[in-house]
Design a binder for these strands. Sequence first.
DNA 1: ATATCTGTAATCGTAACTGTTACGTATGTC
DNA 2: GACATACGTAACAGTTACGATTACAGATAT
Lengths: 123, 123
Amino acid sequence: MGDGQPVTSDWIAGSVNTNPVVVRRLLSALAKAGLVSSIRGSAGGSVLAQPAGRISLAHIHRAVDEEEGPALHNQTPNQACPVGRGIQPVLVRIIDRAEAAKEAVLATTMLSEVVAAIRAEAG
Amino acid sequence: MGDGQPVTSDWIAGSVNTNPVVVRRLLSALAKAGLVSSIRGSAGGSVLAQPAGRISLAHIHRAVDEEEGPALHNQTPNQACPVGRGIQPVLVRIIDRAEAAKEAVLATTMLSEVVAAIRAEAG
DNA sequence: ATATCTGTAATCGTAACTGTTACGTATGTC
DNA sequence: GACATACGTAACAGTTACGATTACAGATAT
């Protein structure tokens, strides 16, 4: 993967110490986002769909955590209360900004850099 | 609360549309962080322990979400694999930076501003 | 054909959280 | 002092989310 050789979900599962199906579910999300393409059948596996230098951590984050709007409140607040009525849009606005800042940082690091750092770390 | 009048957990629960005990649990966390002080007994409730202009959303966030280090991996990765061995410190470093950026944004908005925004929103 | 691999559905176990009830403790009021 | 009011917490059930597993259909190289 990245070397061009397809990697099987079994192999990744062995490295991450989990079940192959769990890996396939994540890989499936990455494939839908166009970051990875998977090859079925014998000698199959997954390959990067783009060069590692063009895939940012923000891309990965968005692909895997596909939350649709922050579930700010469990129960909708009491609309009869002025606070309950007004708090929702205000907080959504602020949280969106904070989340955007986080993503901006993730967008600055590319997958290739992570790979390089891992190589350096593990010798 | 903020006006100096103590607010009861019952009152907040009515506004947020949940149970008073749930509110008290959160209030307890805020009290431990020194953001709120609670008054027991009749005519009791909770009051801000600091002026709203000195309490940032980052303070609140830290007080309520007291996660100790990101639970990056569920199962520890396979240490026999060079990737599994090296990925952990690398990702922790990056995620910490991203989380710090998020908190930096939250630190710029004070509780007083949120209150003002809510007042404007709800008329 | 057969051995591999992915893609997905179905299930089970578990951790985390909410909602509730219950009860002890503190405190203002009469 | 008796009483009503509120917090602080423990205990427990119901729900939700997620990971781990099993099972099986479809695709593909040899």
